[in-house]
């Protein structure tokens, strides 16, 4: 598992991905970790197949008992089917996930982990002195979906928005936006159901101060590429399968 530190300040953001041991037939995912002095938050911790490499990677940054928080942007298996395993490994942790998915996600088993339901209008996660904002992003693509914004690090973790599918050794940042577009187009057109939801989300996100836009698949967008992405997404017609 490749680890890339994407923010270093009073706390850290680390991106995990490009897992070389991953079976070929499952989708490649990026996991993000927010590390404060005594706590650790895993954003979209990934599928059950990814549990062992992910856990092993996190142990480079935090001991098991300091993994206190998990966040699931939505209910998809590539996001959180590892829940049942984290549930057995962690003794004192919370899962922050959309309220509407509680009854669904509990199918993965969530007994020792406390399920903290995120209401439709969003909320926050407090991690020691860091406060992360949970930004509603419903219907992008999941009907109950949140992104995580860190105003201090200026990072917006966007789940499946901005996703692309890449070779296992692809760089972690977009370096040629024009070339990257083709890797994103069909995914966004096919997976995102609502032009209206997209418009509302873009309006909201344009007002945020963002250095890095960090999706759950593919490459992150940095600097001007963030705006380029928003403009491109704005102009894209989605929900094409009907």
């Amino acid at each position: 598992m490749k680890m890339t530190k994407i923010y270093e300040g009073s706390h850290q953001w680390i991106m995990f991905g490009r897992d070389e041991g991953k079976p070929d037939n499952i989708i490649d995912t990026n996991q993000y970790v927010v590390r404060t002095p005594n706590r650790c938050l895993l954003l979209d911790p990934g599928g059950a197949e990814l549990f062992a490499p992910m856990m092993a990677a996190v142990l480079h940054h935090a001991p098991v008992d300091q993994i206190t928080d998990l966040f699931a942007s939505h209910q998809d298996p590539d996001v959180i089917s590892s829940l049942g395993l984290w549930d057995q490994a962690l003794t004192n942790a919370k899962l922050h996930a959309p309220a509407i998915w509680e009854g669904f996600l509990r199918h993965y088993s969530c007994e020792s982990i406390e399920y903290v339901p995120i209401p439709d209008n969003g909320g926050t996660i407090k991690l020691e002195s860091v406060e992360l904002q949970l930004i509603p992003a419903h219907y992008l693509h999941s009907p109950g979906n949140f992104h995580v914004y860190d105003p201090q690090a200026k990072i917006l973790m966007t789940g499946d928005v901005g996703a692309a599918f890449e070779a296992p050794d692809a760089p972690v940042f977009v370096d040629n936006f024009a070339a990257h577009v083709e890797k994103m187009r069909h995914w966004h057109q096919r997976m995102m159901p609502s032009n209206q939801a997209k418009r509302v989300w873009i309006e909201r996100v344009r007002n945020m101060d963002i250095d890095i836009l960090a999706p759950q698949h593919g490459r992150m967008f940095k600097g001007d590429d963030v705006k380029r992405f928003l403009d491109w997404f704005d102009a894209l017609q989605v929900g094409i399968a009907v």
Binding site: A52, M55, H60, P63
Partner: peptide
């Protein structure tokens, strides 16, 4: 779970906090 935990512990060899997986 036990098998995955063992695998994780093995993969974590050399990591700073590898020992914390023992519990």
């Amino acid at each position: 779970a036990y098998n995955k935990f063992e695998l994780a512990a093995k993969m974590a060899e050399g990591a700073v906090y590898a020992k914390s997986m023992q519990e």
